[in-house]
């Protein structure tokens, strides 16, 4: 494992870049020259970009919480599977493996996504943040602290996903309204039903972050 040279960019530099990419309002991003007139020249089959064959393990480099992990994966492996079972970071949880519960939520370039619905090969060259990445050493980050103080969980299994959803929300909106919080949490199921406390945690986390 090697140290990522982006390690020290965990702060604003990365956030801003992720944000701009995500909003994607840059003028002229759809290159008219490329798309019209329609492409008519014969295509060369060998001109393909990157190929990962189905039956081989391929090497991908995943930047997780500031550390680059070079791992061998099958193209079909999800980022979730690789995080948990290959890299061994089990803070990110598996609930459905089909994008329907949110337990596996991580930030990719600061934006909450389901790691079960993200191929590991798709996560190359992106900045991945998991719940473990919110820790400062052994100290909890502000969202985690808020979850403790407001008792924003019961069994705790959906919790890392909820925390990442809130973290993602707060990286985008500094002090969200109650309705924005509810929306921000609406991609994460909590079967124990701790939603009211999760909302409270998100509000508290916004305060803690602004301190």
């Amino acid at each position: 494992m090697e140290k990522n040279d982006h390690d020290d960019k965990q702060g604003n530099g990365y956030s801003r870049r992720g944000f701009m990419q995500f909003i994607g309002v840059g003028a002229g991003v759809v290159g008219a020259s490329l798309l019209s007139p329609p492409l008519r020249r014969p295509l060369k089959a060998e001109d393909v970009g990157t190929i990962f064959p189905a039956s081989e393990m391929v090497k991908v480099r995943l930047a997780v919480n500031g550390t680059v992990h070079a791992v061998l994966v099958e193209p079909r492996w999800s980022l979730l599977y690789v995080l948990r079972e290959i890299i061994g970071m089990t803070g990110t949880k598996i609930g459905c493996d089909r994008g329907e519960c949110g337990a596996c939520t991580v930030l990719i370039d600061d934006v909450p996504r389901y790691s079960c619905m993200t191929l590991a090969v798709e996560a190359e060259n992106r900045t991945i943040t998991t719940v473990e990445g919110l820790m400062k050493g052994e100290e909890l980050g502000p969202v985690q602290t808020a979850f403790v103080e407001t008792d924003a969980f019961q069994c705790g299994y959906c919790t890392s996903g909820q925390i990442m959803a809130v973290e993602g929300l707060l990286r985008k909106v500094e002090s969200p309204s109650p309705e924005e919080i509810r929306l921000g949490c609406s991609g994460n199921l909590c079967r124990c039903g701790a939603y009211p406390n999760i909302f409270a945690a998100a509000g508290k986390a916004a305060q803690l972050k602004s301190k």
Binding site: D47, V48, G49, T50, F52, A54, P75, R76
Partner: peptide
């Protein structure tokens, strides 16, 4: 299931 994965750099690819 198994599949191969191709990531073209350009639209024509």
């Amino acid at each position: 299931p198994k599949f191969s994965y191709i990531r073209p750099d350009k639209l024509d690819q």
